[in-house]
Design a protein around this nucleic acid. Structure first.
Length: 572
DNA sequence: GCCGTTTTCGGCCCGACTGTTTTCAGTCG
């Protein structure tokens, strides 16, 4: 059993116990364990075996024993017992905004609704407003939010999809006859949300491979199949498609097709026909026979195109741009010189600054901005000005003693509803990097929210606008905001916009990055890491920039130290 | 359920917002 599955079991256990009214701290302990398991970068099984798992923060004897039970038996009795008390559909109802464990349970007990569909019926029949604590407003909210919930079923965050795909790829690679495996589809294109895992194998024994490939916990129910593929539902809501290439030469053709998206492939096929080529496996053929194919590059070359990496494949218009001379020069992970948005244990991060710095060194970074929350964000243990001053001194001491990597004195400062910042100017002036972010009052009217954010962008002490639209993928819509006005203000005041690389945000999006770059606004990738493993989110931010197709020089953290210090200092 | 130089029990993230109420419970960040 893989870490994501372990994490899911604990998260479900936490949800169910919450529903049962269990001690909230116990619930949180399980939730923390789920988060930890999901963030491990080695198998929990090996950590458990050599005793390191139980040493991790938040893992005690009980949780370690439950991990052991899951790994040994594939089951968790505590979870089964909790699941027997409440229908699974109640957990989906709890995902509705404004509906938590208490209200979900109340709906179940008063109306007998046990899943979103039944709740929808009850709400439309105005039976919800009769339940104590509910009224006409919440009834209407439920109907509206159920529609949103419906829309997002079957789609998961890219980060989860990548883990599931990697786990499944390992299984597929071990199936009989398999010579190589590649992940295609939306995961390969780094789409923010993924509805289908798409894997391709080259095999000497296609039938044997397809038969064995089904024997995996990810395969719930087969919903379609043909001679060289099957499609299945998974326990995670998204679908799985596995295609097998019977001969090695066709592998790249199938990879291209399965990577998609459909419109891009169609445009390539149309182009081939217009060039007198016939698009068919293993690639493109002319009268004399097929053109040689030893990789995807050859397929593009046959059409007179530069290689178009998966991230830029869209609706086909990129093919025309390439025909007109565009050659994608995309940001590369190796160009990133540092991370400008990280939380330490001073606020709500898990690791000390020393641990974060060591992790940044391992990534080869030249700088790392430690940007803990400001005072008013109590939930995240925001720093008082006194603690911030002490932290700044600790950073100076670190830098004096440790050449090579420079820690930057930073803060992620709350933008108050009136657009003012949560630290006084003299405190902001003492920082190397100031990120300004909205963390409260998300529901301001559009004009007011725009005013608020523009004011922050215009503030002479602000370098970066953090997670500019505030969206949480699959969870929360962006706040009402006139982004074009914000971008114009950013351009006028030389304020940078963040690409928050946390997989649940990816904010700015690729489209917005393109818009920003077009206006001459610089962007910064920040991982918003709350623990050192999350520094790896940088690759998600890089993918956003690649999908936007903008010049790497637009991205501030490709700059070398000296250039960055100068730019940061100019703001004072 | 976890944790510990305020340590083996009793804390654990806390305040604002919302819609429902007539004074507050539940949810959320």
């Amino acid at each position: 059993m893989h870490n994501v599955q372990l994490a899911r079991a604990f998260a479900q256990l936490a949800d169910l116990l919450e529903l049962a009214g269990e001690n909230p701290f116990k619930v949180r302990a399980y939730r923390r364990a789920a988060d930890l398991l999901a963030s491990l970068n080695e198998p929990a099984a090996s950590l458990l075996r050599d005793g390191r798992l139980i040493q991790m923060p938040g893992i005690g004897r009980q949780i370690a024993a439950k991990v052991d039970e899951l790994l040994a038996t594939g089951r968790l009795r505590a979870l089964e017992a909790a699941a027997a008390r409440f229908p699974a559909g109640l957990l989906e109802i709890m995902e509705l905004p404004g509906v938590g464990p208490k209200r979900a349970r109340s709906l179940f007990e008063h109306l007998g609704v046990s899943n979103p569909r039944e709740l929808d019926e009850a709400a439309r029949a105005h039976r919800v407003r009769a339940v104590p604590g509910f009224g006409a407003k919440s009834e209407a909210d439920i109907v509206r939010n159920l529609a949103v919930l419906e829309k997002r079923t079957g789609v998961v965050l890219l980060s989860l999809a990548r883990r599931l795909a990697a786990d499944y790829a390992a299984h597929l690679a071990a199936c009989p006859g398999v010579e190589r495996v590649m992940i295609a589809g939306a995961v390969r294109r780094w789409e923010e949300l993924v509805g289908e895992l798409n894997l391709v194998a080259a095999s000497r024994d296609p039938a044997g491979t397809l038969a064995a490939a089904r024997l995996h916990p990810l395969v719930a129910e087969i919903t379609g199949q043909g001679g060289d593929f099957f499609r299945a539902t998974t326990p995670w809501g998204l679908t799985l498609k596995v295609t097998v290439a019977a001969d090695g030469a066709s592998f790249w053709w199938i990879i291209l097709r399965e990577t998609g998206p459909r419109d891009h492939v169609r445009r390539l096929e149309d182009l081939a026909v217009s060039l007198g080529l016939e698009p068919r496996p293993p690639g493109f053929s002319r009268a004399g026979g097929p053109l040689p194919v030893n990789g995807e590059e050859d397929l593009y070359r046959a059409l007179g195109l530069p290689y178009l990496p998966p991230e830029v494949r869209e609706d086909g218009s990129e093919v025309d741009r390439a025909l007109a001379g565009w050659i994608p020069r995309l940001l590369d992970r190796g160009q990133i010189r540092g991370d400008l948005h990280v939380h330490s244990a001073y606020s709500d991060g898990r690791n000390s600054m020393g641990e974060l710095a060591a992790a940044a060194r391992r990534l080869g970074y030249a700088y790392l901005a430690v940007t803990d929350h400001s005072a008013s964000l109590k939930v995240a243990r925001g720093l008082s000005t006194e603690v911030l001053a002490a932290k700044n001194r600790a950073i100076d001491e670190y830098n004096a003693a440790n050449p090579g990597l420079r820690l930057l004195r930073g803060a992620e400062v709350d933008i108050r509803p009136d657009g003012s910042l949560d630290y006084p100017d003299e405190v902001l002036a003492g920082l190397d990097v100031v990120i300004a972010s909205v963390h409260s009052r998300f529901n301001l009217p559009r004009a007011q929210m725009t005013e608020r954010v523009v004011k922050a962008v215009q503030n002479r002490y602000v370098h970066i606008l953090g997670h500019p639209t505030g969206r949480l993928l699959n969870q929360r819509e962006p706040y009402a905001l006139d982004l074009e006005r914000v971008l114009a203000a950013a351009r006028d005041h030389d304020t940078w916009l963040e690409i928050n690389a946390s997989p649940e945000r990816l904010d700015l999006s690729a489209e917005h990055v393109r818009l920003a770059a077009g206006l001459g606004v610089k962007v910064v990738i920040g991982t918003d890491a709350h623990e050192m493993n999350n520094l790896e989110y940088m690759e998600y931010g890089v993918a956003v920039v690649r999908r936007a197709g903008v010049d790497p020089a637009t991205v501030v953290n490709t700059w070398e130290g000296g250039e960055l210090w100068r730019a940061l200092g100019k703001k004072r």
